[in-house]
């Protein structure tokens, strides 16, 4: 690290993969919260590896930890695929990869959430649940045990995918040798695009205020929908983005402002949960 401040000299070992996998299987989503969802979970999962890569008490480590502690939410069946690719890039490019990694995380979390949810939160429980339930109402536990066995097989896949993704990430970085700028460009573009898409689906707020003008009632949300659906969430994200750019504004202050404003506006009957 002393010789070249931008590159890390650490290579991930099987021990690292094991540690990351244990953290993923046993502790992922423990810190899930409204603001950044699996944000701190992502950092927790790779923290020991980041410390080995950048070294304790270096400005690089602090910078990367901050970036890794931001909004993240994906399927907990596929999360380590993203971590694996991330590790491969950071190992090679070090702190230079900050924007690339932020873009890749934001860009991939949406698609993997979509695939993971439809397979593991909808399809598998529907099939295995039907088998287990039909056997259970006849007094048979075998179906439930079968379901658990299937889930252990799925866990095995969750375990092996990290190293696989890491290897793919390494060959991706090698293939794109010297094209880090192009990769960063594409990854951050995808990240920005996905955040735009998520803002339209995951900020579930709408205007519940209905104006009574004499005999006429005006439903404001209907009028807003005519201008642009999901305009309210977009304006809220834009307002908070602007607010965060103000001097002496921290994310902690911002979140208190948002909570207080939300509770007050909701109590006044202006906005509500969609």
């Amino acid at each position: 690290m002393a010789t070249n401040s931008n590159k890390t000299n650490y290579k991930l070992t099987d021990k690292d993969f094991k540690q990351m996998n244990i953290r993923s299987l046993l502790f992922n989503q423990v810190g899930w919260n409204y603001e950044r969802m699996q944000g701190s979970g992502y950092l927790y999962l790779i923290l020991p590896q980041l410390r080995k890569m950048y070294g304790d008490h270096t400005p690089e480590l602090k910078k990367m930890m901050k970036m890794q502690n931001q909004f993240f939410n994906t399927s907990n069946f596929f999360n380590t695929i993203i971590s694996g690719i991330d590790m491969a890039i950071e190992e090679k490019e070090g702190v230079n990869s900050l924007e690339t990694v932020a873009g890749i995380k934001a860009g991939l979390m949406g698609p993997f959430a979509a695939i993971g949810d439809s397979i593991f939160a909808a399809l598998v429980p529907a099939i295995m649940g039907a088998i287990a339930a039909n056997m259970a109402v006849q007094g048979n536990v075998v179906g439930a045990i079968l379901w658990m066995l299937v889930n252990f097989v799925i866990m095995w896949f969750r375990w092996i995918q990290l190293k696989f993704a890491y290897k793919q990430g390494v060959s991706l970085v090698n293939e794109m040798q010297g094209q880090l700028n192009a990769l960063t460009d594409a990854a951050t573009l995808l990240g920005v695009y996905v955040v735009g898409a998520l803002a339209a689906t995951m900020v579930n707020t709408h205007v519940i205020f209905v104006a009574h003008l004499g005999k006429m009632t005006v439903n404001l949300q209907d009028k807003i929908d005519m201008i642009m659906p999901k305009l309210v969430p977009a304006l809220i994200v834009g307002a908070i983005y602007w607010m965060l750019g103000r001097k002496r504004m921290t994310s902690t202050k911002a979140i208190f402002i948002v909570i207080i404003v939300a509770v007050v506006l909701s109590a006044l009957g202006i906005i509500g949960k969609a």
Partner: peptide
Amino acid sequence: LLPAVGFA
């Protein structure tokens, strides 16, 4: 509403 803070 809080995810909006995370996105911002």
